[in-house]
């Protein structure tokens, strides 16, 4: 599975409140409505950059803070195809898998090289991130098969609806 998108660079400790503020969470339950507030307190223009089909490139502890699942849901709806970061907060990582948004851990050295606006290609099966502008790539640990299957189907709910089973049903991982 290959994903291509334009790099949007962000910093360290991007918390779920910055992604989508708690005050909007109760205003509407419709995720596509919430996308207009994405990263509002960080930079209101970011949402337009995300919309063209983007890959967020960030530092450490991306998605820290509350366990709110709206955060990865809104990013996905806003046009984010994947997130590349030095590290992810644990609950955000899990929530992203469940909603079908790929999150990829990449070493800091490589992250520093990527420039805002570079076109990136991510090969989830092989475990590779290419910067098409710079012509350089880096190896990342590929997802276990069952996570790849969930992401491929766009999230666990979609997977379950299609197969009427979970990827782990009947087998020990």
């Amino acid at each position: 599975m290959k994903i291509t998108g334009i790099a949007v660079k962000l910093g360290n400790h991007i918390n779920t409140d910055l992604i989508i503020s708690g005050k909007h969470k109760y205003r509407t339950q419709v995720i596509s409505e919430l996308t207009k507030y994405v990263f509002e307190d960080l930079d209101p223009k970011l949402k337009d950059k995300l919309a063209i089909g983007s890959v967020i490139v960030a530092g450490k502890n991306f998605g820290c803070g509350s366990s709110r699942e709206q955060a990865p849901r809104v990013l996905k709806a806003a046009g984010v195809r994947a997130i590349v970061a030095e590290s992810f907060a644990r609950i955000f990582f899990r929530n992203s898998v469940n909603v079908g948004l790929p999150t990829i851990v990449v070493n800091l050295e490589y992250i520093r090289k990527i420039k805002d606006g570079d076109s990136l290609t991510i090969d989830l099966i092989e475990g590779r991130v290419f910067d098409n502008e710079l012509g350089i790539d880096t190896k990342v640990s590929p997802y276990p098969k069952f996570i790849l299957d969930i992401i491929n189907d766009g999230g666990i709910a979609e997977y379950y609806k299609r197969f009427n089973a979970f990827p782990w049903d009947g087998k020990l991982l």
């Binding site: 709110r68 899990r94 909603v99």
Partner: peptide, 18 residues
Amino acid sequence: IGVGSTDAALAMATGKLW
């Protein structure tokens, strides 16, 4: 452990989680 809403739902629905 603490989880998000889909994981909580999966646990409520199936009694299992990865």
